[in-house]
Amino acid sequence: MEIVSQVLLVIGGLFFLLGGLGVLRMPDVFNRIQAGTKATTLGAFALLLGIGFMYPTWFLKVGIIIVFIAISNPIGSSVLAKASYKAQGAPSNVVQDDLKEFLGGTEDVG
């Protein structure tokens, strides 16, 4: 149990490190959002599960936090991405812009 939790903690820390590196090094907003969100979601899951394995009585609370992160993180990042698309459009080096075709030129991106 101890070893499982320690391995999970190390994995979580590693994913947080990679997420931070991605936010620092990626070229444009959308890449940064996806690096930050995906890496830190998995990192937070691993960290919380590690804590849950270390103190099994906390498992219910840890589960609630995991559900919260699983809902809030994707929604927040998708809203951020849409807001940034609305503000400045797609990055200049994008070859095909499917979202523009999908919206059909309407203003209502939301």
Binding site: I64, V67, F68, I71, S72, I75, S78, K86, D108
Partner: peptide, 18 residues
């Protein structure tokens, strides 16, 4: 100045409870 999409509308109600 914006209209929420489906995901934001449903997800915020789920988060509200938590």
């Amino acid at each position: 100045g914006f209209h929420p999409n489906f995901m934001l509308r449903i997800g915020s109600k789920a988060l509200f409870g938590i």
